[in-house]
C-alpha cells in the first residue's frame, strides 16, 4: 500500500493520462482530426454503432416502454395477454390520491437527505483528520476506508446483519457491556430503528468516497496561504471557514449532489434489511415500493408511473452534475 492511494485525485487539474504514459503533453490541435474526418466522414458513426445499439436496447427501449406503460392499465391480466387499455394519466392520478405513495416519497426524501448530509459531514471530518495526523495514522485511516469502500453491498449487508444480530451480535454485546439493557434487542422491528441501522450501513459505506475526495481537495489548499492567515491571527476555525472551505467547496458540492442521487435510489440495503426482519409496508422507500408494485403485485402500469417519477427526479438532480462535468471539460 503506497502512501498515496489517490494519485489521480490528488492532482485535480492533471489529466489522468499522465499516470500510464510518458508521452510529452503536446498541444492538441483540431487540424488532423478534421483532415481525417474529411477522408472518411462515416467512420466515427461506425465506431459509435455498438455503444448506441446496446444503450438503445438496454436503457432506451425500457424508458420508452415505461413511459407508454405508465399511461396504460397494465396488471396481471394484461401480462397474460389481455390487451392493455390506455388510461391516460389514470395511474398517476390514482397514485397521487394514494396517501401511501406520499408517505413513501416523504420517507425517501428525508432518508436521502439525512444520509447524504451525515455522509458529507463525517467524510469532511475524516478528511480534516487525515490532514492533521502523522503519516502512519493517516495511512491506517486510508487503508481501512479503502477496505470499507471495496466491500460489495451484498457482503457488507451480510456482515452488518451479523453485527446487529439480536441474539449474538457484537453491537448488542458491546452496548450491554456498557451497562445498557440490549440483551436480545431487535434492531429491525421498529421502523425508526430499522432506518437508523440502514443509515449506519450506508454512511459507513459512503464516507470513504467523500473522505478521499475531500482530502484530495484539501491537499490543493496552498500551505503558505494558511500560514499567512495564521500570522495575521486567524484561528483554526477561521482558517477553515475563510480559506479551506471556499477552496474545497466545488468538490464538496459535487460530492453532496452525487450522494443525494445515490441515496435517493437506495434499494439493495433496504430490500436486504427487510429480508432480515423489517416490515416492508413500514420501511419501503421508492425503490422497494416500485419492486413491490411491479414484481410483487404485478401492476406494471402503476410501477412504471412511480419509476417515471424517480427517473425525472434523478435527471433533474443530475442536470447540475452533468453541467458541471461539461464546464470542466470546456475549461480544459
Amino acid at each position: 500500500m503506497s502512501s498515496q492511494p489517490l494519485p489521480a485525485a490528488s492532482a485535480d487539474s492533471v489529466p489522468v493520462v499522465t499516470h500510464g504514459s510518458s508521452a510529452p503533453p503536446a498541444p492538441r490541435t483540431h487540424r488532423p482530426a478534421r483532415l481525417r474526418s474529411r477522408r472518411s466522414p462515416g467512420l466515427p458513426y461506425l465506431l459509435l454503432i455498438p455503444s448506441v445499439a446496446i444503450l438503445l436496447l438496454a436503457l432506451g427501449y425500457p424508458v420508452v416502454w415505461q413511459v407508454l406503460t405508465s399511461l396504460k392499465k397494465f396488471g396481471l391480466a394484461q401480462q397474460f395477454g389481455k390487451p392493455a387499455a390506455w388510461v391516460g394519466l389514470g395511474n398517476y392520478v390514482a397514485l397521487a390520491k394514494d396517501p401511501y405513495l406520499w408517505t413513501v416519497v416523504g420517507r425517501s426524501l428525508v432518508f436521502c437527505l439525512v444520509n447524504a448530509l451525515a455522509t458529507l459531514l463525517i467524510g469532511m471530518l475524516v478528511a480534516l483528520l487525515m490532514k492533521a495526523v502523522p503519516g502512519w495514522a493517516r495511512i491506517s485511516v486510508q487503508v481501512s476506508m479503502l477496505l470499507a469502500w471495496a466491500m460489495p453491498v451484498i457482503t457488507a449487508m451480510a456482515v452488518w446483519r451479523w453485527l446487529f444480530d439480536y441474539r449474538r451480535g457484537v453491537v448488542n454485546y458491546l452496548l450491554t457491556q456498557l451497562g445498557l439493557d440490549y440483551v436480545g434487542h431487535s434492531w429491525l422491528e421498529s421502523p425508526l430503528s430499522f432506518f437508523f441501522v440502514a443509515t449506519v450501513i450506508i454512511v459507513w459505506a459512503s464516507v470513504p468516497f467523500v473522505a478521499f475526495s475531500a482530502y484530495a481537495g484539501l491537499t490543493q489548499v496552498p500551505g503558505d496561504v494558511l500560514e499567512a492567515a495564521q500570522i495575521d491571527g486567524a484561528g483554526s476555525l477561521g482558517r477553515f471557514r475563510w480559506i479551506i472551505l471556499p477552496m474545497i467547496r466545488p468538490v464538496l458540492s459535487i460530492v453532496l449532489l452525487l450522494q443525494i442521487i445515490w441515496d435517493l435510489r437506495v434499494f439493495a440495503q433496504i430490500r436486504l434489511l427487510q429480508d432480515a426482519g423489517g416490515t416492508p409496508s413500514q420501511t419501503n422507500l421508492l425503490g422497494t415500493y416500485i419492486y413491490q408494485l411491479g414484481i410483487g403485485s404485478g401492476d406494471f402500469g402503476k410501477a412504471s408511473a412511480v419509476s417515471i417519477f424517480v427517473l425525472l427526479l434523478t435527471i433533474a438532480l443530475s442536470w447540475f452534475y452533468v453541467r458541471r462535468l461539461l464546464t470542466d471539460e470546456a475549461q480544459a
Binding site: 444503450l55 436503457l59 415505461q66 442521487i261 435510489r265 419509476s307 424517480v310 434523478t314
Partner: peptide, 24 residues
Amino acid sequence: SFILAVLVIQMLPAEGLFIAQYRL
C-alpha cells in the same frame, strides 16, 4: 449530443428501470 446523452444515461437508476427491463 452523444456525450451529453452518455452523461445523463450514466445517472439513470436501475431502480427506475427494472420493471421495463424485466418485461424486455
